[in-house]
């Protein structure tokens, strides 16, 4: 490698995307810890005034609200026509190019091909997993807030969530809420591992990108046909 490599820098994660990511990460961490303690209270108060479980539940509810606000904000942000954060990015399996990229990714993961994928925006396979994750989130919001609203039957929240009560019993909601947590934990393990792996293999600054917002690539042609993005501002120019 005598000739110097030329890296192109892309501003992929806008500030709201990064904020949502870290609010999600923090609230998932808090929700999992407090949720586990609510299910298996290993904590013990020394006197009836200690309110230990009360605080654990309070943190769980606040983190739950933080997560739903963050997720809904992120969904609203995806309505802007941005190359890396717009809603189109989330459905690579709908386009031919996207499916090809997913195939490259799968071949890499299953050690079939040595060709390292070099995704500039979202990794096409990861983004497909995020769609599943968001569905799990909404299952957790429905079951979680339906359980929470039971303290005030007939209240605004309980009335709004009536379909959930018709669909399943309270105990079933508890069950799905636990299963949902474990699915999210499995996702987190996968997510952290993949970021780590691709940071090493792609050499594009995968891990730091979620702090700084920038990713690097040596690719000459980055985007599939009909989709071009500016290096800094990242707006779409659709050629027809």
């Amino acid at each position: 490698m005598s000739e110097p490599l030329i890296f192109k820098r892309y501003y992929v994660w806008q500030l709201p995307v990064r904020i949502c990511h870290w609010v999600n990460a923090l609230s998932i961490l808090l929700l999992s810890i407090t949720g586990f303690l609510i299910g298996y209270p290993v904590i013990a108060g020394s006197s009836p005034q200690s309110f230990v479980m009360g605080w654990v539940r309070f943190i769980h509810f606040v983190a739950g609200y933080a997560l739903i606000i963050s997720v809904i904000s992120r969904l609203l942000w995806s309505l802007n026509d941005h190359c890396f954060s717009g809603w189109r990015e989330y459905f690579p399996f709908l386009t031919k190019e996207g499916r090809a990229e997913i195939l490259v990714m799968l071949k890499f993961y299953f050690f079939i091909d040595r060709k390292t994928p070099d995704a500039v925006g979202h990794n096409p396979l990861a983004v497909t997993a995020y769609v599943g994750l968001f569905l799990i989130f909404f299952g957790m919001f429905a079951s979680g807030f339906a359980l929470y609203a039971e303290h005030a039957p007939g209240g605004v929240m309980a009335t709004a969530l009536k379909p959930v009560y018709l669909l399943m019993s309270t105990q079933t909601m508890h069950l799905y809420h636990h299963i949902g947590m474990w699915l999210i934990i499995c996702f987190v393990i996968n997510h952290i591992y993949s970021v780590w792996l691709l940071d090493i293999k792609e050499k594009g600054g995968e891990i730091t990108s979620i702090f700084s917002g920038y990713k690097y690539t040596t690719k000459v042609h980055v985007f599939s046909e009909g989709k071009e993005c500016d290096e800094n501002g990242c707006f779409i120019r659709v050629k027809k």
Binding site: F111, T116, L197, K201, T218, K219, V220
Partner: peptide, 21 residues
């Protein structure tokens, strides 16, 4: 599963994206 995957990935020599360029 990911620990095993990581171990294999660490030993395996994949193509550098720069080479591909």
């Amino acid at each position: 599963a990911f620990a095993v995957h990581g171990a294999i990935s660490a030993l395996r020599k994949d193509k550098d994206p720069a080479e591909k360029t």
